[in-house]
Write a protein that binds this DNA or RNA. Structure first.
Length: 871
RNA sequence: GGGAGCAUAGCUCAGUUGGUUUAGAGCAUCUCGUUUACACCGAGAGGGUCCGCGGUUCGAACCCGUGUGCUCCCA
């Protein structure tokens, strides 16, 4: 078959992916083999493939394909996350385009739209992963809102509540006074507005003096329960421990001190309104201040405000200027620009408001999760994240799990009209609980909590619930696949997700969820900026795959992806991948071209050295790659394979065994060469699955597929043989360099004399050496040869004879540079050796080594000086 | 404000318990070359104050202290 000039990926990739699918290679069912399980971090159901997914899933595919080729039962589970905030936002935007507002819909109507949207657009990303070659078990595709999964999430809520880990607590939320609803942080849009900064005077108790406080929201003073100053502020030191009176209502409140207050903003004195400001709320908690809510849910002043009851807070703000001024309590008003939050839905100015939310108390469930990482039952790669994890887990804060959204798992709590609450699996069960207090209640009296659970409250169950470990406890699959082997994820969600999965695993499966966690880097652009939609610096992956091929994209992203560091993505890495594809393709073409000239009787004597060397070099590289992959150094493993193929195999081995033009090749050499290529395709397959499968089949007829072929055991490399090859490379490079420096054209032939103590070594490689440096003859000598170019490699000298007129100046310059280097080196070694303390204190082998270096340098200098004289 | 991490060639990074030459690789750059797999190629070359300062040591890219710059997480 005639092969195309360059490799064309698209057709090949689609064909092989279909073939693998039709053979069912990616499917896994429990059997007697060792399991290797990865659960894919579920992308948002709204997601489209971006570089982060590409990196993440390529890594997982490499691990899972390697495991499969090691004969393990590899199981990689795909799925998506309902992503409550992101999805709800998308659905709201879609509805808005159709002229429908969320507030005009009932909860059920909205959810119907959301599901419709999910069925239509959800999981596009999973289809895109097929293009990447990801070997996922598609039959297992899971979703965090599947019916069983939903039930499990609710069950976990009920269970944690029963155990006393879930409680209700106050939290500052964003309140939309028009929609009369809480907003998630994502639904608040911050805008810069021109405000006024009011300087208001608070009378000091037992004095005629005032302390002046600056605020942009004067209407909130009715909720003030303290005034706070920085303890270091000299202006207010005399007021520590005193009390002041809130203007108009004359509430007596303390002056407290806290570092939170900045000295140079406003007057340096802060009014503290715990009910209506998040920072004030925290201060209030710290100093046990009273919380006075002065707003109704429609944004009008409540009875607690005492003044302006029922009037809108913004109207009151305007009126306050006159009222305070009249009372002589307004010192001045300044223009002030600040950021204010507005509702994305109604454009109303958002009011911070305290609200009762659901919380998980973390201390207790975090303990085993901290332990399993510290004791390395779960290993982090790179290990540096252990510190970060420990620090966070030791200072863990309670987790607010309610979100003011509809799309998600609705909180299983019901309220009676009197505000009493029951946590239960359904309304009927809740009613029973609530009737204990009030027997006259019926179903229509009670209302379910409007909020949803935080997305992470469902995804923390992922590693076991994809096997129905909670909804169908102790089933065959959970017993076989759990704990999983490796989790691959981004370090930014170590706390949101990784830590919580570990907690849930211990709490519900009584086991860690995974053995290894591999943290990828963050994908950035060339300038180091994080890839994001708003910057528009995220490339279209499918377009890149079309241009370069999936293998090249996988190569490009992995080669620039050192473990644990961010990756700076640059298209030139993809070019490198494409070029590598092409190199592989041309290897195939070259070897295939020899097929019709195979001669079974031809002797392989001249190629023996090359074959022995490569066989051992291959084993050595396989060993190295194995070690690197075991320690999750994927990028380095790929570099090792790349260099083995490109440098050792193509640039050296193939050149050494290549038959002359139209010349036959011995069957032994041909078979070995094909065998090595097969082995290398095997090594490379997890990284570049498509082209390796293609070449594996094209190079020789095959019954099996590379995709699920089990690797042969790795041979033991003979280091002497490998070193012999390295010496040969070194000699060839040195001789080529000398040729180059003396401006010999590739076509110009040379004669070679070698002065060496190891004639036998060179006898074995004479034919290769002649071919590689274009020498017509090789002879051995005991002394210098006149009128030649002299090259020294280790202790051996090479004399290049040529009929071309030599320009001695270039040669001389090179020799002089080398001489200077060697002399400098000798000096440093000699200095070290003449230091008595070094000789006395250093380990004997280190001293011996230095002496060896010294002797070598002296010999080398003598050779160079001799060469210079003969010029 | 609290915490974690990073700093080595133009760029991205290796560099193991401190001693295998005066620090390596890939990409990029430069020179030469169209030789019968490949110009998406081949053969070569140049390129470094290992962030600054101080210390420990016979010996520091590596250990300790300190300064500077950058990144991330939490508030």
């Amino acid at each position: 078959m005639e092969l195309s000039k360059n490799y064309i990926p698209n057709e090949t990739e689609a064909r092989w992916y279909q073939h693998w699918l039709s053979k069912g290679y990616f499917k896994s069912t429990p059997d007697e083999r060792e399991a290797y399980t990865i659960v894919m971090p579920p992308p948002n159901v709204t997601g489209v493939l971006h570089m982060g997914h590409c990196l993440n899933n390529t890594i997982q595919d490499i691990l899972i394909r390697r495991a499969r080729m090691q004969g393990k039962n590899a199981c990689w589970v795909p799925g998506t996350d309902h992503a409550s905030i992101a999805t709800e936002a998308k659905v709201v935007a879609m509805l808005r385009e159709r002229g429908i507002t969320k507030s005009s819909l009932t909860r059920d109507e909205f959810l119907a739209y959301a599901w419709e949207w999910k069925e239509k657009y959800g999981g596009i990303i999973l289809q895109q992963l097929k293009k990447m070659g990801c070997s996922l078990d598609w039959d297992r595709t899971a979703f965090t809102m599947d019916p069983d999964y939903y039930k499990s999430v609710i069950e976990v809520f009920l269970d944690l509540h029963k155990k006393g880990h879930i409680y209700r607590g106050k939290r500052m939320i964003n309140w939309d006074v028009k929609a009369k609803t809480a907003l998630s942080d994502e639904e608040v849009i911050y805008k810069e507005v021109q405000s006024k900064l009011y300087h208001i005077k608070y009378a000091i108790e037992g004095s005629n003096d005032f302390i002046t406080v600056a605020t942009v929201r004067p209407e909130t003073i009715f909720g003030d329960t303290a005034v706070c100053v920085n303890p270091l502020d000299e202006r207010y030191k005399h007021l520590h421990g005193k009390f002041v009176f809130v203007p108009l209502i004359n509430r007596r409140v303390p002056i407290i001190t806290d570092e939170y207050v900045t000295l140079d903003f406003g007057t340096g004195a802060l009014k503290v309104t715990p009910a209506h400001d998040i920072n004030d709320y925290q201060l209030g908690q710290k100093y046990n201040l009273e919380v006075i809510d002065t707003l109704n849910d429609d944004g009008t002043m409540s009875e607690a405000a005492q003044f302006f009851i029922g009037e809108d807070r913004l109207d009151v703000r305007k009126k306050m200027e006159a009222v305070l001024s009249e009372a002589g309590l307004l010192e001045k008003v300044e223009a002030y620009t600040n950021q204010v939050g507005f509702s994305e839905r109604t454009d109303a100015m958002v009011e911070p408001r305290l609200s009762l939310q659901w919380w998980v108390s973390m201390k207790e469930i975090a303990t085993p999760a901290l332990q399993s990482v510290m004791e390395e039952a779960i290993q982090f790669h790179p290990a540096k994240f252990k510190n970060l994890y420990r620090h966070w887990m030791e200072n863990i804060k309670d987790w607010c799990i309610s979100r003011q959204l509809w799309w998600g798992h609705r909180i299983p709590a019901w309220y009676a009209p009197d505000g009493s609450v029951a946590v239960a699996a359904n309304a009927n069960e809740a009613l029973v609980i609530l009737q204990e207090k009030n027997a006259s209640l019926n179903l229509s009296d009670i209302k379910q909590d409007e909020d949803c659970l935080d997305t992470w409250f469902s995804s923390w169950l992922w590693p076991f619930e994809v096997f129905k470990g909670l909804s169908n406890p102790g089933n065959d699959e959970i017993k076989y696949y759990y704990p999983t082997q490796t989790l691959v994820t981004a370090p930014e969600i170590i706390f949101f997700w990784v830590a919580r999965m570990i907690m849930a695993g211990h709490e519900y499966m009584d086991q860690k969820p995974f053995e290894h966690v591999y943290f990828t880097g963050i994908v950035r652009d060339k300038q180091g900026r994080k890839m994001s939609k708003s910057l528009g610096n995220s490339p279209d992956l499918l377009a890149l795959i079309d241009v370069y091929g999936a293998d090249a994209v996988r190569f490009g992203i992995m080669i620039s992806s050192p473990a644990g560091n961010d990756i700076l993505f640059d298209e030139s890495a993809l070019e490198q991948g494409r070029n590598f594809n092409n190199k592989l393709w041309n290897v195939l073409k070259l070897i295939q071209g020899w097929e019709k000239r195979i001669d079974s009787n031809l002797d392989a004597h001249n190629e023996k050295f090359a074959m022995d060397w490569f066989e051992n070099r291959l084993s050595q590289a396989q060993q190295e790659v194995d070690v690197l992959l075991n320690s999750f150094k994927l990028s380095e493993a790929l570099k090792t394979i790349y260099s083995l193929i490109w440098d050792d195999y193509c640039s050296w081995y193939l050149e050494w065994i290549k038959p002359g033009f139209e010349q036959p090749i011995s069957k032994e050499v041909y078979d070995k060469t094909v065998h090595y290529l097969n082995e290398m395709m095997h090594m490379l397959h997890p990284f570049m699955p498509f082209i390796t499968e293609e070449i594996y089949h094209l190079i020789s007829p095959k019954q099996d597929d590379l995709c699920n072929k089990i690797a042969a055991p790795i041979g033991q490399a003979n280091t002497d043989i490998v070193a012999g090859g390295e010496l040969l490379k070194q000699v060839i490079s040195a001789l080529r360099d000398a040729r180059n420096k003396n401006q010999l054209k590739p076509k110009d032939t040379i004669t070679l004399h070698i002065q060496t103590g190891n004639t036998e070594t060179y006898k074995a490689i004479e034919s290769i050496l002649c071919k590689q440096v274009n020498a017509t003859s090789i002879a051995y000598t005991n002394s210098s040869i006149d009128n030649t170019i002299v090259v020294a490699v280790e202790k051996d000298k090479f004399f290049i004879g040529t009929s071309i007129e030599l320009d001695a100046t270039a040669l001389k310059a090179t020799l002089l540079a080398d001489l200077a280097y060697q002399k400098g080196f000798l000096e440093s070694v000699t200095k070290k050796l003449s230091n008595e303390r070094f000789v006395q204190n250093a380990k004997p082998e280190v001293v011996a080594l230095e002496q060896q270096k010294q002797a070598d340098a002296i010999a080398r200098i003598a050779t160079i000086e001799e060469s210079l004289q003969s010029l």
